Computed example of a mutant assay.
Amino acid sequence: MDLPVMPPVKPMLAKAVAKIPPDMHYEAKWDGFRAIVFRDGAETELGSRTGKPLTRYFPELVEALRERLPERCVMDGEILIARRGRLDFDALTERIHPADSRVRMLAERNPASFVAFDMLALADTSLLDVPLGDRRALLVKTLSGVTAPAHVAPATTDRETAQQWFERYEGAGLDGVVAKPLTLPYLPDERAMYKIKHERTADVVVAGYRFHKSGPVVGSLLLGLYDTTGALQHVGVSAAFTMKRRAELVEELEPLRLEDAAGHPWAAWTRESAHESARLPGAPSRWSAKKDPSWVPVRPERVAEVAYDHMENGVRFRHTARFRRWRPDRTAESCTYGQLEEPVGYDLAEILGPPG
Rank of each mutant, 00 (worst) to 15 (best):
G51Y: 12
I79R: 04
R39K: 12
P7G: 12
R102A: 09
S220N: 08
P265K: 01
A91S: 13
T336D: 06
A274K: 04
A107T: 09
L253H: 03
F241S: 04
L61W: 06
A16C: 03
P185Y: 05
P21Q: 11
A239W: 01
M6P: 02
L54H: 12
A99H: 11
L54R: 00
H212K: 09
V303E: 04
R84N: 14
V9E: 05
G208C: 08
S277C: 08
P59L: 08
E312A: 07
E312F: 06
R109P: 01
A99L: 12
L253R: 00
L348S: 08
L256S: 10
S334F: 10
A42H: 08
E305M: 14
G47E: 08
A321V: 12
D347M: 11
F58N: 00
R159E: 12
V37Q: 07
S101P: 00
P265I: 02
G230M: 05
P21D: 11
L65F: 08
G176T: 10
C335S: 04
E27G: 04
A35C: 15
E71K: 13
E251T: 12
R324K: 15
T157G: 15
H319A: 14
D31V: 07
R68S: 14
L340W: 04
G345Q: 11
M1F: 06
L128F: 06
E259C: 06
C335P: 02
E27M: 06
G47Y: 04
R245P: 00
E170I: 01
R86F: 13
E108Y: 05
S238D: 03
D347R: 14
L348M: 15
V235Y: 03
A179W: 00
R302W: 00
I96L: 14
A202V: 06
G353L: 06
G353E: 08
Y26I: 07
V62C: 09
A153E: 03
A16Q: 15
T125A: 15
T157M: 14
Y26M: 12
S285R: 06
V178F: 01
F58D: 02
A304E: 07
A283Y: 08
K29Q: 12
R102S: 06
Y337S: 07
E305R: 13
T147I: 03
T93I: 11
P21T: 11
G353W: 01
A153R: 02
K244S: 12
M12E: 14
V9G: 04
A18H: 09
A283W: 05
L348G: 02
F38Y: 15
L87N: 03
A172S: 15
I20M: 04
